[in-house]
Write a protein that binds this DNA or RNA. Sequence first.
DNA 1: TGTCCACTGGAAGGGAGGGCTT
DNA 2: AAGCCCTCCCTTCCAGTGGACA
Length: 403
Amino acid sequence: MSDIDEIFDRLLSRESIFRNKRVLSHDYIPEVLPHREKEIKKLAYILATALKGGKPSNVFMYGKTGTGKTAVAKYVLKKLDIKGQQLGLHFLYAYVNCRYKTSNYRVLLKIAEDLGVGRLPETGLPLDSIFDRIVRFIDRKEQLVIIIFDELDWLVKKSGDDILYQFTRINNDLKKAQVSIIGITNDLKFRNYLDSRVLSSLSEESIIFHPYNAQQLYDILKQRAEIAFVEGAVTEDALRLVAAIAAQEHGDARRAIDLLRVAGEIAEREGSDKVLEEHVIKAKDEVEKDLVEATVRELPLHEQLTLLSIIMLVKRGERLITTGKVQRMYEKICEFLGYKPVTLRRLNDIFADLEMLGIINAPVESAGRYGRTRNIKIVVPFRSILKAFESDERFTIVLKEIP
DNA sequence: TGTCCACTGGAAGGGAGGGCTT
DNA sequence: AAGCCCTCCCTTCCAGTGGACA
């Protein structure tokens, strides 16, 4: 008990190294976005039409994760809103992150919620009727509605482009209001999946975001660190290291900021009054592990079993892991645990799912005479997946009992 | 040059579990 | 209560395919 008291006392008596931790959270939009001036200008230019009462073109924004697409969109909209208010204009906004809204229904629901349509049931209504309600709601008066579809590729891959099609045509149904759409995607190849009508309507304008390099990431981190931490709490070396790690991982600024935050938390936990390189290194492991563990734990049963089969094959020292091998292992595990295995067709979709989640790489390769199959590789730290499985007794038994 | 392996991936559909409207 | 409509996970059926080998 006294141990715990001591921990509490120590924590209380010490000044925190954080001054304003919120600055390091995902939804924080800073006053200045370094190295995105060009993109901000372009978007502002497009949206400025709204200030003269016009309908801005739809915009498509491409770029990898953490290149500032969402931040730029939110930033410009915030400024637009302020300017609009000065001019007595009122705009409506909706923001959907399609990655976390798994179905058409959820997407519509989020839009309805953001616009303030009113209470709608979690499920049950026909899609048309929700869409109608949204249309009726926004068409009550003359106004501009801006809808942001973030991580649009997820929506299209999961549920197709029906909703998108409806939204691109929505202006035909509206008498008073007008709708502009901002589509954001990480997947550059994703245009191929879209119906050409949707694509042409969506990409009236497009903005491309390039990954940040280490120096740019450093500038971003520096700016955030100055607000987030007390003076001198982050060493130059630590900051450089965070920037370097994130630059290696495709210039993802969000990851960089996460990393900095966690490094700070670790430093604080360990009673250090400075964030050092060693804290950053620990933070890197922790961030990665947490993410993978959570993802794996939330997978549906047969996706977990499939992943477990892959893990078993890796453990066994198999160098080439093919669909067939996984299927045989998977069926063995199912038999062992008393589950009815899914078909090969389903398994194939599961591979695609796991690949989308970034857990595996599974490109289709041909061995000529010996057929075509996926070449499956785990692309996250092996230990974090194991860790996720270890919390479930069924899987632990399999790991022990099956060679 | 054709064959043929080991799959891949599209299309259609189903049923359990949810909740709506009437 | 009946009759719909939705999602999620899954099945059945099957045409299609890259390239090493004969």
